[in-house]
Amino acid sequence: MIPFTTLTGIAAPMLRANIDTDLIIPKLFLKTLVRTGLGRHLFAELRYDNEGHEAPNFVLNQAPYRQATILLAGPNFGCGSSREHAPWALLDFGIRCVIASSFADIFYNNCFANGILPIALPIAAIEDLAAASGPLTVDLQAQTVAVAGRLHPFDIDPARKASLIEGLDQIGRSLANLPAIEAFEARRSRETPWL
């Protein structure tokens, strides 16, 4: 996983509520066997018309947002399906950070597994970020989002912060504690043998 420390980039505003993972990456594209190449299908039903042409009104089809590395959204971003194809598509497009007023659980977890930083901020702060014209700077160590000299601090769980900054292999970390897993299994076989 690519570590996340700081990021300066263009933030694309999509401030509607309840952007679900079906909208982020429609089911057609879940038939892939790999994690890569989904960026061109990100938000496909909003981004392209029925003939596959770009919809000019959609934010990611407009300059400078084609180069966006940050997404700004409203409440309950990433609700619905557990598909990790949603963060894969965001990442493949170039989005490394989503700033929303709240997130759905599974999507939030999936971001961290892919080096994407999800930041929850009050809607007023997000509107302030969306109104700014220049790039934003996200500093994970300092837990701030900066724009035009203004700083918006954010909260993040320390364990999740550390895993993003270090780009930790979570499976390796769990396997390092194999003896505890084996001991648990031995006890479980004695106490609840039907499992």
């Binding site: 557990s82 597994a113 499976i171």
Partner: peptide, 15 residues
């Protein structure tokens, strides 16, 4: 429900 990275985590560690 879990994501695919977590599916891999469970396949490898059962945790």
């Amino acid at each position: 429900g879990i994501g695919t990275s977590e599916v891999e985590h469970v396949l490898a560690t059962q945790t």
